[in-house]
Design a protein around this nucleic acid. Structure first.
Lengths: 193, 193
DNA sequence: CTCCAATCTTGACACTGTAAAGATATTATA
DNA sequence: TATAATATCTTTACAGTGTCAAGATTGGAG
């Protein structure tokens, strides 16, 4: 308990410090030494918990992805039916990153989130946001009693994901408020019908 | 002409060296000093041509974007009609980055391409790939004699762009060959009709 | 109580971006 | 053409970075 030498929970503290730094001054200013000193610990202490700077970054990405998933899950659970759940999920997929563009740059920037988050990369079948999208979409098909071939389902799923992800990317890239109308895109026989 | 002290065209040489480094070992391994030494020049020489590392990176991004535009333009010009031009442009938008995932990470990664490429950021109205997409789309509307409101046009344009960009992003992220069917997405009353 | 493994510190190294001061070549000026 | 101004490049220096090695400190298992 004597907290001179042993921090107690340095691993989590480093992750939190990293997130704070990213929020305050962006990813590019995140360094192992800054995170360490934010935890009042020597510059080499992180190496007891992370093999690499990359490993710390991977842990931070997982943590941010959990935040992201929390919002998506809430959006889906709060919807009246599966169709609205799809709409709300897409809306939040985009608006989350518009509110936190630094998160988007961090997650989908230089490195590979998916490779970081999931071990075996069988496309994105294990990537949490995609898993949630897929299950919601399947519920939607059942709800509307729509019969589609596997191929058609894959195309629609990928298109839904790509549209939301592309919008988020474009918005975060340009830094300008994109006046997109997500409902307009989904409805009107465009992506869903 | 005595090429001891003065390089002759160091600015362009640095850009080329940067591109080569990115292609060979990714963006994260690109440093001013490496680019300088690749041009057989001292490590501070770049500062005669670029205020910053950021400024060199901006120049490289412009150069890569030109390459990208070349392929898109060829695709559009080689098409029989405007509809096929739209399809081909989208196809190449994605496949270009699948062939060069490091380019995608570099362009749309940590920094802001659009802010780099164009001075005043009025959304993306000046971003070359978007400009080409827009003109092609308008030609397509005229060709098919389709009347759409300004709002509907904007939604469709943004959706086209987001879909292509999202697919590229997802493909480059996961690192896995995405078996997407671009034509399937565009045709079949999905994005175009 | 002792010993071991986990955790943390200290010191060192190579590499980075960038600034300042000086050297050299090119261009403009007179 | 001679000289001055400017652009280009080198050298030196410094703070910050990731990472490693060696040692100090601690909590816990036996």
């Amino acid at each position: 308990m004597s907290d001179s030498y042993h921090h107690g929970n340095l691993r989590q503290a480093l992750i939190d410090a990293g997130i704070k730094i990213i929020n305050e001054s962006g990813e590019e200013s995140l360094s192992l030494r800054k995170a360490a000193s934010a935890c009042q610990v020597s510059h080499a202490a992180p190496y007891a918990h992370f093999k690499d700077k990359d490993e710390l970054i991977g842990a931070i990405k997982s943590s941010v992805t959990e935040q992201f998933m929390e919002e998506l899950t809430d959006a889906v659970n709060g919807a009246a039916d599966a169709e609205q759940a799809l709409v709300e999920m897409g809306k939040h997929y985009v608006s989350f990153f518009i509110r936190k563009p630094d998160y988007f740059k961090f997650l989908f920037g230089s490195q590979n989130v998916i490779a970081h988050t999931i071990p075996d990369k069988s496309f994105a079948e294990d990537y949490p946001p995609f898993v949630l999208l897929k299950s919601t979409y399947l519920k939607y098909l059942k709800e509307k009693k729509l019969k589609k071939s596997k191929e058609e389902q894959e195309v629609e799923l990928l298109q839904l994901w790509a549209t939301a992800h592309g919008l988020a990317s474009i918005a975060c890239m340009s830094g300008v408020e994109t006046t997109f109308d997500w409902e307009e895109m989904l409805k009107g026989d465009r992506l869903l019908r």
